[in-house]
Design a binder for these strands. Structure first.
Lengths: 184, 184
DNA sequence: TCATCTCCATACTCCATAGTACGGTGACCA
DNA sequence: TGGTCACCGTACTATGGAGTATGGAGATGA
């Protein structure tokens, strides 16, 4: 009955990954500290090094965890596709705000880690293709669509690095930014 | 003749700051390690702790160093103002590419340091105002100008976090991105 | 009942880096 | 020529976090 054994082990291993994932979204990759996570889970490091070889193995598991979550989001984006293309883009924008903490953490992590950079790159490739497909429906050329998709993604991610100014930006700046990116 | 003494001291102190500044641009705030800098300068930590109270004092000096450099750049931008507004914006864009390493390091540092965040915020306030002023010359309303200036800055900074896709973007993507941000 | 296996606690080591104590050297000055 | 001082080398301590060695508790099956 190795099956039961495996299930039980994976349960606790998943608990570690989930806790680490929350901490990653909250405090970044550097915040994923084994001792602190153990305290949060009510156990000690002894538990961790039973389920994982080392910290790197946990971090790789976090990359997988994130990649799968992103894939699910992409599927939800494709399935819940309204007829209105602008509405689809607005939903992508809203989804971006929703996943901002973990997205931010991943992109910052990718700045100094090759594997994280590759994960982000793969995810962005799919997201950019999806946005570009939306733009082609609005009669932009494929080349122009790819360029504007990149522009949108950089604008959203740039929000992590550039805060809004003190001056008044008017009502619903996000919606108006989207309109600017769709103007010819 | 304490004057001579002071000058000599400041020379070496400045050497430390310059070396740290280069390392900041190259490897980020975490890369500013005292022992490594000492080796690069051909001295030991004993020298460092003569000129600085601790590592924090060096980091604060780096913030000042950067803020002054940014002020100088803003002055150069204002002085070398051509009549053509689009040309001015292109020059700002080019200047952004030029200072990308240190700019990137500062923004990443600002993600987990309050003082660095404040320094970036102050610098961005001036830069955004300058870009917005350019946009007003192109007959955008003040509100619209502030919004588009923010859009531009976020796009440029977003380039640190989002790499270009494998697909072809056509000739001179930066210039065409600028045109998109100027379209109505 | 005892033998084994899973899971975890305890108590360490190891390593990198910040920071300190103190002594030495060379220049300059009275 | 002896004294002072700026400047730095040497050798330490302190700290935080990763990783290890080992034993023990509890379940489980023969």
């Amino acid at each position: 009955m190795t099956v039961t054994v495996t299930v039980t082990q994976r349960q606790t291993r998943v608990a570690w990954i989930e806790a680490a994932y929350r901490e990653l979204a909250r405090a970044g990759e550097r915040g994923v500290a084994i001792t602190a996570l153990a305290a949060r889970l009510g156990v000690t490091k002894g538990s961790f090094y039973w389920h994982f070889k080392d910290r790197t193995e946990l971090l790789r598991a976090l990359l997988d965890r994130w990649a799968h979550e992103r894939t699910d989001e992409m599927l939800r984006m494709s399935l819940g596709s309204t007829g209105d293309t602008r509405e689809r883009l607005r939903r992508i924008q809203a989804l971006g705000r929703e996943v901002a903490p973990i997205d931010r953490a991943m992109r910052l992590w990718a700045q100094h880690d090759k594997d994280a950079a590759e994960a982000v790159r793969q995810a962005d490739r799919a997201l950019l293709a999806h946005i570009a497909a939306c733009l082609e429906e609005l009669d932009f050329t494929p080349e122009e669509s790819r360029l504007r998709a990149l522009l949108m993604l950089r604008t959203w991610a740039g929000g992590y690095l550039v805060q809004g100014p003190p001056g008044d930006l008017g009502p619903d700046p996000d919606a108006r930014m989207l309109e600017i990116l769709l103007a010819r």
